[in-house]
Write a protein that binds this DNA or RNA. Structure first.
Lengths: 129, 129
DNA sequence: ACCACTGTAATAGTATTGTGGTACAGTAAG
DNA sequence: CTTACTGTACCACAATACTATTACAGTGGT
Protein backbone atom coordinates (compact mmCIF):
# COMPACT_ATOMS: atom_id res chain seq x y z
CA UNK A 1 0.00 0.00 0.00
CA UNK A 2 2.56 2.56 1.15
CA UNK A 3 6.29 2.70 0.59
CA UNK A 4 8.89 4.14 2.93
CA UNK A 5 12.66 4.26 2.74
CA UNK A 6 14.45 4.02 6.11
CA UNK A 7 17.70 5.28 4.54
CA UNK A 8 16.17 8.51 3.24
CA UNK A 9 17.26 11.76 4.87
CA UNK A 10 13.59 12.63 5.32
CA UNK A 11 12.29 10.71 8.33
CA UNK A 12 10.00 7.73 7.93
CA UNK A 13 7.10 9.32 9.77
CA UNK A 14 7.25 12.33 7.45
CA UNK A 15 7.30 10.19 4.31
CA UNK A 16 4.32 8.22 5.48
CA UNK A 17 2.40 11.27 6.64
CA UNK A 18 2.65 12.86 3.21
CA UNK A 19 1.50 9.71 1.44
CA UNK A 20 -1.53 9.27 3.66
CA UNK A 21 -2.46 12.93 3.42
CA UNK A 22 -2.24 12.72 -0.34
CA UNK A 23 -4.43 9.62 -0.32
CA UNK A 24 -7.08 11.42 1.67
CA UNK A 25 -7.21 14.63 -0.34
CA UNK A 26 -7.13 12.71 -3.60
CA UNK A 27 -10.18 10.72 -2.55
CA UNK A 28 -8.45 7.34 -2.40
CA UNK A 29 -9.53 7.21 1.24
CA UNK A 30 -13.09 8.55 1.45
CA UNK A 31 -14.62 10.04 4.60
CA UNK A 32 -15.40 7.46 7.29
CA UNK A 33 -12.90 5.09 5.74
CA UNK A 34 -11.19 3.10 8.45
CA UNK A 35 -7.41 3.24 8.24
CA UNK A 36 -5.25 0.21 8.93
CA UNK A 37 -4.63 -0.19 12.64
CA UNK A 38 -1.37 1.04 14.11
CA UNK A 39 -0.02 -2.47 14.56
CA UNK A 40 -1.17 -3.70 11.15
CA UNK A 41 0.55 -0.89 9.33
CA UNK A 42 3.63 -1.16 11.53
CA UNK A 43 3.99 -4.84 10.69
CA UNK A 44 3.41 -4.27 6.98
CA UNK A 45 6.02 -1.51 6.70
CA UNK A 46 8.39 -3.13 9.20
CA UNK A 47 8.55 -0.05 11.36
CA UNK A 48 7.75 0.57 14.98
CA UNK A 49 4.11 0.95 16.07
CA UNK A 50 5.13 4.15 17.82
CA UNK A 51 6.13 5.68 14.52
CA UNK A 52 2.71 4.95 13.03
CA UNK A 53 1.05 6.37 16.13
CA UNK A 54 3.02 9.56 15.62
CA UNK A 55 1.85 9.82 12.02
CA UNK A 56 -1.79 9.20 12.85
CA UNK A 57 -1.64 11.58 15.79
CA UNK A 58 -0.26 14.42 13.72
CA UNK A 59 -2.76 13.82 10.94
CA UNK A 60 -5.47 14.01 13.57
CA UNK A 61 -4.12 17.36 14.76
CA UNK A 62 -4.13 18.59 11.17
CA UNK A 63 -7.78 17.59 10.87
CA UNK A 64 -7.46 14.74 8.40
CA UNK A 65 -8.15 11.82 10.73
CA UNK A 66 -10.16 11.16 13.83
CA UNK A 67 -9.31 8.66 16.53
CA UNK A 68 -11.99 6.39 17.94
CA UNK A 69 -10.43 4.73 20.94
CA UNK A 70 -10.58 0.97 20.87
CA UNK A 71 -11.82 1.01 17.32
CA UNK A 72 -9.27 2.69 15.08
CA UNK A 73 -8.52 5.80 13.04
CA UNK A 74 -11.04 7.05 10.51
CA UNK A 75 -10.89 9.64 7.74
CA UNK A 76 -12.59 12.74 9.03
CA UNK A 77 -15.79 13.65 7.23
CA UNK A 78 -16.04 17.23 8.43
CA UNK A 79 -14.61 18.76 5.29
CA UNK A 80 -15.06 22.33 6.49
CA UNK A 81 -12.51 21.90 9.21
CA UNK A 82 -10.16 20.10 6.87
CA UNK A 83 -10.37 22.89 4.33
CA UNK A 84 -9.73 25.46 6.99
CA UNK A 85 -6.72 23.61 8.31
CA UNK A 86 -5.34 23.12 4.85
CA UNK A 87 -5.50 26.82 4.11
CA UNK A 88 -3.81 27.63 7.37
CA UNK A 89 -1.00 25.27 6.45
CA UNK A 90 -0.83 26.77 2.97
CA UNK A 91 -0.52 30.27 4.40
CA UNK A 92 2.35 29.11 6.58
CA UNK A 93 4.11 27.54 3.63
CA UNK A 94 3.65 30.68 1.55
CA UNK A 95 4.94 32.90 4.36
CA UNK A 96 8.05 30.81 4.74
CA UNK A 97 8.64 30.69 1.01
CA UNK A 98 8.39 34.47 0.71
CA UNK A 99 10.51 35.12 3.78
CA UNK A 100 13.36 32.95 2.58
CA UNK A 101 13.20 34.36 -0.93
CA UNK A 102 13.32 37.91 0.37
CA UNK A 103 16.35 37.02 2.45
CA UNK A 104 18.05 36.12 -0.81
CA UNK A 105 17.32 39.60 -2.10
CA UNK A 106 14.72 38.55 -4.62
CA UNK A 107 11.86 40.83 -5.59
CA UNK A 108 8.10 40.04 -5.56
CA UNK A 109 7.89 39.85 -9.36
CA UNK A 110 10.77 37.39 -9.45
CA UNK A 111 9.12 35.29 -6.75
CA UNK A 112 5.82 35.27 -8.62
CA UNK A 113 7.60 34.28 -11.82
CA UNK A 114 9.45 31.41 -10.15
CA UNK A 115 6.19 30.06 -8.80
CA UNK A 116 4.44 30.30 -12.15
CA UNK A 117 7.28 28.50 -13.82
CA UNK A 118 7.25 25.73 -11.26
CA UNK A 119 3.49 25.31 -11.55
CA UNK A 120 3.72 25.23 -15.33
CA UNK A 121 6.36 22.54 -15.10
CA UNK A 122 3.94 20.18 -13.39
CA UNK A 123 1.43 17.98 -15.18
CA UNK A 124 -2.25 18.59 -14.59
CA UNK A 125 -3.33 17.70 -11.10
CA UNK A 126 -6.71 16.35 -10.20
CA UNK A 127 -7.64 15.92 -13.84
CA UNK A 128 -6.32 12.39 -14.08
CA UNK A 129 -8.33 10.94 -11.25
CA UNK B 1 26.62 44.52 13.94
CA UNK B 2 24.78 41.19 13.90
CA UNK B 3 22.47 39.65 16.42
CA UNK B 4 22.05 35.95 17.14
CA UNK B 5 19.97 34.12 19.74
CA UNK B 6 21.55 30.88 21.03
CA UNK B 7 18.20 29.77 22.47
CA UNK B 8 16.36 29.96 19.18
CA UNK B 9 15.22 26.71 17.57
CA UNK B 10 16.88 27.85 14.35
CA UNK B 11 20.63 27.25 14.68
CA UNK B 12 23.05 30.11 15.19
CA UNK B 13 24.91 29.50 11.96
CA UNK B 14 21.64 29.69 10.03
CA UNK B 15 20.58 32.94 11.70
CA UNK B 16 23.89 34.54 10.94
CA UNK B 17 24.01 33.26 7.37
CA UNK B 18 20.68 34.88 6.59
CA UNK B 19 21.69 38.22 8.06
CA UNK B 20 24.96 38.36 6.14
CA UNK B 21 23.29 37.30 2.92
CA UNK B 22 20.69 40.00 3.38
CA UNK B 23 23.43 42.54 4.05
CA UNK B 24 25.15 41.62 0.81
CA UNK B 25 22.12 41.65 -1.46
CA UNK B 26 20.83 44.86 0.09
CA UNK B 27 24.10 46.58 -0.69
CA UNK B 28 25.17 47.17 2.89
CA UNK B 29 28.27 45.16 2.07
CA UNK B 30 29.45 46.21 -1.40
CA UNK B 31 31.60 44.02 -3.66
CA UNK B 32 35.21 43.67 -2.50
CA UNK B 33 34.17 44.63 1.01
CA UNK B 34 36.26 42.71 3.50
CA UNK B 35 34.20 40.86 6.09
CA UNK B 36 35.25 40.66 9.71
CA UNK B 37 37.71 37.84 10.28
CA UNK B 38 36.48 34.55 11.67
CA UNK B 39 38.00 35.18 15.07
CA UNK B 40 36.85 38.79 15.26
CA UNK B 41 33.25 37.91 14.57
CA UNK B 42 33.40 34.86 16.83
CA UNK B 43 34.61 37.01 19.72
CA UNK B 44 32.03 39.71 19.07
CA UNK B 45 29.10 37.29 18.98
CA UNK B 46 30.52 35.02 21.70
CA UNK B 47 30.31 31.93 19.53
CA UNK B 48 32.87 29.44 18.36
CA UNK B 49 35.19 30.35 15.46
CA UNK B 50 34.17 27.06 13.91
CA UNK B 51 30.59 28.26 13.64
CA UNK B 52 31.64 31.41 11.79
CA UNK B 53 33.83 29.36 9.49
CA UNK B 54 30.80 27.23 8.66
CA UNK B 55 28.77 30.32 7.79
CA UNK B 56 31.46 31.87 5.61
CA UNK B 57 32.15 28.56 3.92
CA UNK B 58 28.53 28.02 2.98
CA UNK B 59 28.17 31.59 1.75
CA UNK B 60 31.21 31.00 -0.40
CA UNK B 61 29.59 27.88 -1.87
CA UNK B 62 26.48 29.92 -2.59
CA UNK B 63 28.58 32.46 -4.43
CA UNK B 64 28.22 35.41 -2.09
CA UNK B 65 31.72 35.45 -0.62
CA UNK B 66 35.20 34.52 -1.70
CA UNK B 67 37.98 33.30 0.55
CA UNK B 68 41.47 34.73 0.19
CA UNK B 69 43.66 32.57 2.35
CA UNK B 70 45.70 34.45 4.88
CA UNK B 71 43.81 37.62 4.11
CA UNK B 72 40.12 37.12 4.85
CA UNK B 73 36.69 36.77 3.26
CA UNK B 74 35.51 39.32 0.73
CA UNK B 75 32.16 40.02 -0.87
CA UNK B 76 32.24 38.53 -4.33
CA UNK B 77 32.10 41.04 -7.15
CA UNK B 78 31.12 38.64 -9.89
CA UNK B 79 27.44 39.52 -9.76
CA UNK B 80 26.55 37.26 -12.66
CA UNK B 81 27.41 34.17 -10.72
CA UNK B 82 25.59 35.48 -7.67
CA UNK B 83 22.46 36.18 -9.68
CA UNK B 84 22.61 32.72 -11.17
CA UNK B 85 23.02 31.08 -7.80
CA UNK B 86 20.20 33.09 -6.33
CA UNK B 87 17.82 31.99 -9.04
CA UNK B 88 18.82 28.39 -8.57
CA UNK B 89 18.06 28.71 -4.88
CA UNK B 90 14.77 30.44 -5.67
CA UNK B 91 13.77 27.63 -8.01
CA UNK B 92 14.49 25.11 -5.27
CA UNK B 93 12.40 27.04 -2.79
CA UNK B 94 9.54 27.31 -5.27
CA UNK B 95 9.70 23.60 -6.08
CA UNK B 96 9.52 22.66 -2.43
CA UNK B 97 6.69 25.09 -1.77
CA UNK B 98 4.63 23.69 -4.64
CA UNK B 99 5.39 20.08 -3.76
CA UNK B 100 4.30 20.46 -0.17
CA UNK B 101 1.19 22.39 -1.15
CA UNK B 102 0.19 19.76 -3.66
CA UNK B 103 0.60 17.08 -1.02
CA UNK B 104 -2.02 18.96 0.93
CA UNK B 105 -4.38 18.64 -2.01
CA UNK B 106 -4.33 22.31 -2.93
CA UNK B 107 -4.80 23.45 -6.51
CA UNK B 108 -2.52 25.76 -8.53
CA UNK B 109 -4.98 28.68 -8.37
CA UNK B 110 -5.16 28.36 -4.60
CA UNK B 111 -1.38 28.27 -4.37
CA UNK B 112 -1.05 31.34 -6.56
CA UNK B 113 -3.62 33.15 -4.46
CA UNK B 114 -1.87 32.32 -1.21
CA UNK B 115 1.38 33.69 -2.56
CA UNK B 116 -0.23 36.90 -3.81
CA UNK B 117 -1.86 37.42 -0.44
CA UNK B 118 1.41 36.89 1.38
CA UNK B 119 3.26 39.27 -0.92
CA UNK B 120 0.56 41.89 -0.52
CA UNK B 121 0.82 41.59 3.22
CA UNK B 122 4.43 42.73 3.17
CA UNK B 123 5.54 46.36 3.14
CA UNK B 124 7.49 47.63 0.17
CA UNK B 125 10.93 46.08 -0.04
CA UNK B 126 13.98 47.91 -1.24
CA UNK B 127 12.17 51.22 -1.25
CA UNK B 128 13.15 52.14 2.28
CA UNK B 129 16.88 51.89 1.77
C1' DA C 1 -17.37 -11.47 32.27
C1' DC C 2 -14.14 -12.56 28.98
C1' DC C 3 -10.93 -11.96 25.19
C1' DA C 4 -8.92 -10.15 21.20
C1' DC C 5 -8.55 -6.23 19.29
C1' DT C 6 -8.01 -1.05 19.35
C1' DG C 7 -5.26 3.42 20.76
C1' DT C 8 -2.14 5.64 24.56
C1' DA C 9 1.58 6.67 27.49
C1' DA C 10 6.11 6.31 29.55
C1' DT C 11 10.82 4.88 28.82
C1' DA C 12 15.20 3.96 26.68
C1' DG C 13 18.51 3.42 22.97
C1' DT C 14 20.64 5.33 18.69
C1' DA C 15 21.94 8.48 15.17
C1' DT C 16 22.35 12.96 13.59
C1' DT C 17 23.35 17.69 14.13
C1' DG C 18 25.09 21.78 16.14
C1' DT C 19 28.70 23.71 18.73
C1' DG C 20 33.14 24.19 21.32
C1' DG C 21 38.26 23.46 21.87
C1' DT C 22 42.68 23.02 19.85
C1' DA C 23 46.29 22.45 16.68
C1' DC C 24 47.88 23.07 11.80
C1' DA C 25 49.00 25.68 7.41
C1' DG C 26 49.24 29.55 4.50
C1' DT C 27 49.78 34.74 3.59
C1' DA C 28 51.49 39.42 4.24
C1' DA C 29 54.19 42.80 6.28
C1' DG C 30 58.23 44.26 8.92
C1' DC D 1 63.26 34.91 8.18
C1' DT D 2 60.38 36.11 11.84
C1' DT D 3 55.88 37.55 13.53
C1' DA D 4 51.15 38.35 13.74
C1' DC D 5 47.54 37.83 11.44
C1' DT D 6 44.47 35.02 8.15
C1' DG D 7 41.65 30.54 7.00
C1' DT D 8 41.54 25.20 7.56
C1' DA D 9 41.15 20.69 9.53
C1' DC D 10 40.51 17.45 13.15
C1' DC D 11 38.50 15.71 17.31
C1' DA D 12 35.28 15.88 21.38
C1' DC D 13 31.13 17.16 23.77
C1' DA D 14 26.08 18.31 24.15
C1' DA D 15 21.60 18.63 22.54
C1' DT D 16 18.19 17.16 19.71
C1' DA D 17 15.37 14.19 16.81
C1' DC D 18 14.02 9.69 15.38
C1' DT D 19 12.96 5.17 16.29
C1' DA D 20 12.37 0.96 19.18
C1' DT D 21 10.65 -1.53 23.46
C1' DT D 22 7.44 -2.23 26.78
C1' DA D 23 3.52 -1.81 29.58
C1' DC D 24 -1.11 0.31 30.26
C1' DA D 25 -6.09 1.46 29.29
C1' DG D 26 -10.31 1.66 26.58
C1' DT D 27 -13.97 -0.81 23.00
C1' DG D 28 -16.55 -4.17 21.01
C1' DG D 29 -18.03 -8.63 20.07
C1' DT D 30 -18.85 -13.32 22.08
Amino acid sequence: MFRVDPDSPVPVYEQLKRQIRLGIVSGAFPPEHRMASIRELATELTVNPNTIAKVYGQLETEGFLISRAGSGFYVKDCQESVLETRHELLAELAAEFVARSVELGLTPPEIQAALSEELGRRPALGTDK
